[in-house]
């Protein structure tokens, strides 16, 4: 476990900032790229918390595999559309711009009435997080970073706990998740073979 506040602050700013960028980016590709950064920042969190295995799984599945799936679905869903100027055009989506813009609730005249409230909410969350982090760094940091009992574990303990958890304590849950993955693969293949979908 890495007990360094600077790394924690950097990872926190990365994960929250890119999460907001992913939500409020104007086109889906930028949103996806920001989401990739969020997933890698999550892997960094797992690493500094001492769970290297979770960090590797997070980076491999969410950082690499899931964006490929989402990117492929974006590519498949462009029927004759062109990627021009950061926005999708073509098909029926070129007419309803609201689906690809901010995506917030809109009035009939096109102006988003929810935007000021959401901006205020996000600003409040940011201010709350900033105040909390400043207070924690000034006053409460000894309690959270130094006084608490830090777990001392070696890499062998980490791997041993994973092996014991997956193959002994939670072996049925592990097998059920494996079965679920197999069912999903078989089900998607069957769906793909259907003609009248």
């Amino acid at each position: 476990m890495i007990n360094n506040p600077i790394i924690f602050y950097i990872a926190s700013v990365l994960i929250i900032g890119f999460a907001l960028i992913a939500l409020f980016a104007k086109d889906v590709i930028r949103s996806l790229l920001a989401a990739v950064m969020v997933f890698f920042a999550g892997a960094l969190f797992f690493y500094i918390l001492g769970s290297e295995y979770n960090a590797i799984i997070q980076a491999a599945i969410y950082g690499l595999a899931v964006p490929v799936i989402i990117g492929l679905s974006i590519m498949f869903c462009q029927h004759g559309g062109k990627y021009r100027g950061g926005k999708y055009r073509g098909g029926k989506d070129s007419e309803d711009k609201d689906s690809d813009n901010e995506g917030l609730l809109k009035k009939s005249n096109g102006k988003g009435f929810a935007v000021p409230y959401i901006t205020l909410l996000c600003a409040g969350i940011f201010i709350l997080a900033f105040v909390y982090l400043v207070m924690m760094s000034l006053v409460m940091m000894p309690d959270t970073f130094h006084i608490m009992e830090i777990p001392q574990m070696t890499p062998f303990d980490n791997v041993l706990s994973f092996a014991r958890g997956i193959f002994i304590d939670y072996v049925w849950a592990f097998e059920l998740v494996s079965l679920l993955l197999t069912i999903v693969i078989a089900g998607l293949s069957m769906f793909d073979g259907r003609k009248n979908v």
Partner: peptide
């Protein structure tokens, strides 16, 4: 026992599914 690590691992798989 690090049970939370195992739970997070399962949730990653379920999230991908």
């Amino acid at each position: 026992e690090f049970n939370g690590f195992i739970a997070a691992l399962f949730y990653v798989g379920l999230g991908a599914v």
